[in-house]
Each structure stands twice: as structure tokens, then as C-alpha cells.
């Protein structure tokens, strides 16, 4: 098989295995949906002081899509790759003629498709349950931001595996990194409630940049249209992640 055909082959099996894994499906698909329902219910019909005032629900739809994308990519890859590595499956795959990049490309493709599915799902729920308009006119920008962000967070997730020593450590390490950043970056708590110092701190990390880029694309009406600077920062993080992954990613189990 040629390279692209091999990637498609790998992707097909990755999709199968993903949808049959209840834990992965719950955290990637179910959890963001539950968060959307909780935030929309708790903060109800308030108005958030950004863009001259928008509904809470309109704020949380792009926020939760941001979280879902990071969850489908960085979190999902970091956890499943560490499990596969410690099980010996990565090592075993390296013993076949399949080139290493095919395997990684299949996994990244799997994550990006999941991210796109989550975009559609959360956007549709926002529209149906809370009447948050789907910004069709912005669709090209939305997809570009989402795909670039998804690819960048895939690279960061793959790089992160290098510091995760065991299967048991995967979830705690990933959550310890991401959960605080969701709070500090305005994903969980609307940013008009956050002190300036907090968002300044969060600006040093890519969750904040990706959220801002995606928010810009999803909720038009920013002063100067789409600001691509945030997305560029996300892309730079992604490239850094890629370089670290190439240097430090390991195929063999750490525990043996």
C-alpha cells in the first residue's frame, strides 16, 4: 500500500477502536456535552461583558468546543499513546514494515476527525437547546482555526507522552496540566469574571490563545475582525511540540 492508503488503513482501525472504548468516548464526547449543559443551566440567562455583552450560552458554546478539541487531541492522544506504549503495541508496530509516521498520522487524523465531530455536535446542541446561532458565514475561519489548533494540540499531546512514565500516571498528569488552564483561560469561568492578572498569566499558555482564536472565529464582531495572531501562537506551540515529540517520543515501554 502507498503512504496515504496506509494512513487511511490505520485511521479506519483507530476509529473502530475509539468508538468501542467507553472511557475514551465518555471523556471525549460525553464530558464536554455534560459541561455545556451544566454551565448553561447554572449560569442561565446572564449576560457576559465581552463583545459589548453576549448571552452566557453564546459564550459557552465556543468555550466548550475549545475544550472538546483539546480533549479529542492532546488528552486523547497522550492517554491512548501511553497505554499503547506500555502495552508493547507501539514496539510491536515498529517491527512491521509500516513506517512510524503512518502510525502517528493515522492517530492525528483520528483526533482531528473527532474534533470536527465535536464541533458539529456542540454547535448543534447550542443551536437546538439554547438558540445560539451557528455562524455559517464564519465557517471557513472556524474550520481553519479548529484544524490548526487540533493539529497543534496533537503534537503537544504526543510530546507530553515523553514525561508520562506509566499508564496510571497518564490521566493525572494530563488533567493537572489542562484543568487549571481551562479555569484560568476563561473556558470554565467567563473572562469578565477573571482578574486581569489571571488572564495575563494564562496568556503564556496555548489553551488561552486557542480559545481566543476560536472565540473570535465563532462569535464575530470583534473590533478588528479575525485576529490571526492567537492562532499563529498556537501553531508555534504545535511546532515546538512536534520538535520535542520527534526528539523525545519513545516506542518502547518504560516499565521494562
Amino acid at each position: 500500500m502507498s503512504g496515504p492508503a496506509l494512513v487511511a488503513h490505520q485511521f479506519r482501525y483507530d476509529q473502530k477502536a475509539f468508538w468501542r472504548n467507553p472511557a475514551a468516548v465518555f471523556f471525549t464526547v460525553g464530558f464536554p456535552v455534560i459541561l455545556l449543559l451544566i454551565f448553561a443551566t447554572v449560569f442561565g440567562d446572564q449576560t457576559i461583558d465581552v463583545r459589548g455583552g453576549i448571552d452566557t450560552t453564546a459564550y459557552y458554546v465556543p468555550a466548550i468546543i475549545t475544550l472538546a478539541v483539546i480533549s479529542a487531541t492532546m488528552q486523547n492522544l497522550a492517554m491512548t499513546l501511553v497505554i499503547a506504549r506500555e502495552d508493547g503495541r507501539l514496539k510491536r508496530g515498529r517491527g512491521t514494515p509500516m513506517p512510524a509516521w503512518v502510525f502517528i498520522a493515522g492517530r492525528i487524523g483520528n483526533s482531528i476527525v473527532l474534533a470536527l465531530i465535536m464541533l458539529a455536535l456542540v454547535a448543534a446542541l447550542g443551536r437546538v437547546l439554547y438558540g445560539v446561532a451557528i455562524p455559517w458565514a464564519q465557517l471557513p475561519e472556524i474550520v481553519v482555526v479548529l484544524v490548526v489548533g487540533a493539529a497543534a494540540f496533537c503534537c503537544l499531546g504526543i510530546a507530553l507522552t515523553a514525561v508520562i512514565p506509566s499508564q496510571d500516571a497518564a490521566a493525572p498528569i494530563v488533567n493537572a496540566l489542562l484543568l487549571p488552564l481551562y479555569f484560568l483561560s476563561g473556558v470554565f469561568i467567563p473572562e469578565d469574571e477573571l482578574p486581569q492578572g489571571v488572564t495575563d498569566f494564562a496568556n503564556h499558555f496555548p489553551v488561552r490563545d486557542f480559545f481566543q482564536a476560536f472565540f473570535d472565529a465563532y462569535i464575530p464582531g470583534g473590533a478588528s475582525g479575525m485576529d490571526w495572531g492567537n492562532l499563529a501562537v498556537v501553531a508555534i506551540w504545535g511546532v515546538a511540540g512536534l520538535l520535542l515529540a520527534i526528539r523525545y517520543f519513545r516506542w518502547t515501554p518504560r516499565g521494562g
Partner: peptide, 8 residues
């Protein structure tokens, strides 16, 4: 030692 993908 190698554990196979349990979902396939």
C-alpha cells in the same frame, strides 16, 4: 510481552 488492542 505485548497486550493487544482489547477493542478489536
Amino acid at each position: 510481552s505485548c497486550r493487544l488492542d482489547p477493542y478489536l
